[in-house]
Design a protein around this nucleic acid. Structure first.
Lengths: 229, 229
DNA sequence: GTCTATAACACGATAGAC
DNA sequence: GTCTATCGTGTTATAGAC
């Protein structure tokens, strides 16, 4: 009632903009960023074709916004988890399982889209599989600190392993996490069988199973020489 | 000298066709299947723009051929390795490390393109990240038997784990293998930092490090109930 | 802020000469 | 088997009415 017209306009603006971002995430994930057209995205968002060019400058700017919007909360949650662990253990090493869980849980829990799918995961898999300058810059900005922080914590927890081996195993872990979440997306399961069906697994189980596998992998004896440092 | 004109023509035909496949693999991997244009591919192959439509019926048919051409040798090698292990151990269980190595080594060793890159890996990552009916059918045809065979061998080697958990860990392993090989491709390393630099790692070390990590992961105690069977 | 209409361009595919 | 020229289509982006 007391809402002015400009407030309504501003509310409407934010709404269309947000709807465009959500629709773009889904269309990008399902059809590929390059193949996705502004017509599909705007139709899915219930907006006009010209809306993307009005709210974002271009398709590229929309892509940037979508990526940053869906990555930020996941990585913020990871850092929050890890900060809590650091606070709890002070200078001492953090138990391996806890570090891995801080890496796994936010990605499993916060990458679910409004339809129960894994659009965010499939989008990340896409831009990782297809390195392009623009998306790589975004990934670097979003993930660089995370990687450094986790590898540092892992180095303290696993003093017998060198940095090179920890970095490598950390990337093994990232691959395992992302691929399984991509496969679990119902949108990917409709299609002809890729790999194995994993039906009836709740997210909590996924976390526990990933943590068990990855922690065991990290506990394997090191093969590379440990550098001083 | 004794080569007839028709032989020369046939040789030339096979040559252009093959050059197109190799060029397409590289361009697909670097720019994405959807974004890759026939103009880029034919230029890279030193052929005419119309050559793709002459040798293959369409871009889609070319894509199919490229995928099958680069996947077949890898999976044939995996089956060969595993068959040898089965022959050696008869009805008994195969040691876990040997099964994992039969899974890992062919992908690490046979996915290297003529420029030392990992075009094949990045192409697989692409089509897995972006499920489409056509490419999924090819993946299913190429990988289905592999998955079944390996999971069966793993079940014998790890009788304390249920099929569901083995299938899941098998997919963890596939994710770890593919993502690390994609990251190791020099073509992906030029760009802004994604994850960690893994410089100076030879392929033999990659195999050993992957096998160590994955085998340890499989050895972790099971979390899911074991079904009878 | 939202719409229609269209400009400017790139693509896959093909026809037809050589 | 290889080439040039071109057709038809679909794309992003924008100009301008509402």
């Amino acid at each position: 009632m007391a809402i002015s017209e400009s407030t309504i306009a501003a509310g409407k603006e934010a709404d269309t903009r947000e709807r465009l971002i959500k629709a773009a995430l889904r269309v990008f994930a399902n059809r590929g960023i390059a193949s996705a057209t502004l017509r599909e995205i705007t139709e899915e968002a219930g907006a006009n074709v010209a809306a993307v060019n009005y709210y974002f400058r271009s398709k590229e700017e929309l892509t940037r916004t979508v990526l940053e919007t869906c990555l930020r909360p996941i990585n913020e949650s990871r850092l929050r988890h890890l900060d809590e662990l650091v606070a709890r253990h002070g200078e001492g090493a953090i138990p391996l399982d806890d570090i891995i869980e801080a890496l796994v849980r936010p990605m499993v829990m916060n990458s679910i889209d409004e339809y129960g799918g894994r659009s965010t995961v499939r989008l990340i898999l896409q831009v990782r599989a297809l390195p392009q300058p623009m998306t790589n810059t975004i990934l670097a900005n979003q993930f660089d600190r995370i990687h450094r922080t986790f590898i540092e914590a892992l180095s303290k927890a696993l003093p017998d392993l060198g940095r090179a081996e920890i970095g490598l195993r950390y990337d093994f872990a990232r691959g395992a996490i992302m691929q399984i979440l991509g496969d679990l997306d119902p949108a990917a399961r409709d299609l002809p069988d890729l790999g194995i069906k994993h039906s009836g697994l709740d997210n909590e189980s996924i976390v526990r199973l990933l943590v068990a596998f990855i922690s065991a992998g990290f506990t394997a004896p090191g093969l590379l020489p440990v550098r001083a440092g």
